[in-house]
Nucleic acid binder design. Structure first.
Lengths: 156, 156
DNA sequence: GATGAAAAAGCGATGTA
DNA sequence: TACATCGCTTTTTCATC
């Protein structure tokens, strides 16, 4: 499926107002509400829209410390176990396979330094093959968006 | 405002299904739809719910390359200009002030290596005070969540 | 927080270009 | 194929208890 200009407008509208009604969305687009809903359904089925999430103020719930952790694995055979642990650890928000220093870069969010200490020593370093971790503490977050800039991608 | 156990259940329900109806949410909680809607409205007003966003498959829209860029500023006086540029550059998804190597860690998403090259040379390095950048390419993303683990935070 | 009525939105069928 | 219009159902909202 190839999104056209109208689909891209839908995406940019929905990006930051995921709970808007079809009527409101349709008004922005100049089409009827059923037509707008139909296009959104197609975007969902095509996997371009992956879902709708609620942004929650993590610090208000006690998760006031963010950090990035570069993890080095000893051997490729340790990978599956490591990735399974990553998936099942909710404090690990993101895990990227990277080129450069370390093998994986984790973005984590913990309850203070004690929560971070527990995550590193009792969870990460306990995993087989995790030989080295390098932690970068986040002092403050200036910007945290989720959506990419949405331009007309119909030419792709 | 202090969220109680029921509020936390609301947050965990809404976290990944932001478009669910009040009726559906209320059914999960065992309360009436108006009561559920009322609690959600209070969570929004308290700023605990910051908004509702649509997850979009960025690679499908051409943004197929992610990277982390550590930026070092020459002098604190360069900060305001740098942060303004960060806010107005949509390819920069996140910007964290960090303790460690470099001053700021950016998470960016570009159209291929050419997009990344343009971002680094034509945008970042053009900024006053940006003396050094260290880029880490993301080979693949294993996990990318947005929500923290939501437990009962009423004790905070 | 529940209930019930009014208002609004969503859904499906049909028609049209 | 994509969209508009219509009628029906569900949901939301706003009283009151």
């Amino acid at each position: 499926m190839k999104p056209d200009a109208l689909d891209c407008k839908i995406l940019s509208e929905l990006a930051n107002k995921a709970r808007m009604t079809w009527a409101e969305l349709a008004g922005q687009l100049g089409i009827s509400p059923p037509a707008a809903a139909d296009r959104v359904r197609k975007l969902e089925e095509a996997g371009i829209i992956r879902g709708y999430v609620t942004q929650i103020d993590a610090p208000r719930l006690g998760y006031d410390l963010a950090a990035f952790i570069a993890v080095t694995l000893e051997h490729p055979r340790d990978r599956d176990g490591f990735l399974a642990a990553v998936q099942s650890t909710p404090e690990i928000l993101e895990c990227h396979h990277i080129a450069g220093d370390g093998d994986y870069l984790l973005k984590v969010r913990c309850r203070g330094t004690s929560g971070l200490e527990h995550l590193i020593t009792a969870q990460l370093k306990e995993l087989p093959g995790v030989t080295q971790t390098r932690t970068t503490i986040v002092l403050s977050t200036v910007k945290e968006a989720i959506a990419v800039p949405i331009t007309d991608a119909s030419a792709l």
